[in-house]
Amino acid sequence: MSETKNQSKRKQESTMLQDKMNKEIFEGDIVKIPCEDYADFHGSFTLHEVIQVNGQWVTSYLASEAGRKLPRGYVRGFLLDNFEYDPKLFFWSEDYKPRTEIEVVGNAHQDKHLYSDKPDQD
């Protein structure tokens, strides 16, 4: 019995967070993060892949609006650092949604054209 390409891939885990458009954020998603620091170098945003490191949700730098590329994984930060939230409500209320300006723009496995000069290969 042969598996389809999608069945053979590991199912992406939800971070249980939503972007500014209320779209659920999953492991492997590419998120667009507004750039306040170093905007003259990066432009108005940077692209990051959402990954899990030692049980923590992390954003791993891929590229910037200005096309700046660093080695994959060179710059990382906690995903939750991109949200404004009240810690008490965040941990104790099921209905509470933290505010954010990040936006899911693709998936690192399917949308390599967003951050790589190399064409997508299947």
Results as ranks from 00 to 15, higher is better:
K5R: 14
A39S: 12
A63C: 11
N22S: 14
K5H: 11
I25V: 15
K118G: 02
K20V: 05
Q52S: 13
V104K: 06
Y38W: 12
P119L: 13
Y74V: 00
F91W: 14
D120C: 09
T59M: 11
K97Y: 03
K69E: 15
Y74I: 00
D81K: 06
M1P: 14
H42W: 14
V105K: 08
M21Y: 08
Y74F: 06
A108M: 05
P71Q: 08
S60T: 08
L80F: 04
I30M: 09
D117K: 12
G55N: 09
V105P: 01
F90M: 06
T46Y: 00
I51M: 04
M16A: 15
S60Q: 09
G55Q: 07
A108P: 01
S93V: 00
L114H: 02
S44R: 05
M1N: 08
S2K: 14
L79N: 02
K118M: 12
A108L: 01
K112Y: 04
Q7K: 13
D81S: 12
D117M: 07
R76H: 01
D29W: 06
T4R: 06
N22A: 12
P87S: 04
Q110K: 15
D29M: 04
W92V: 01
V105A: 05
D19P: 07
E84P: 04
G28T: 05
K32G: 04
T46N: 05
S44E: 06
S116G: 04
A108T: 02
A66R: 10
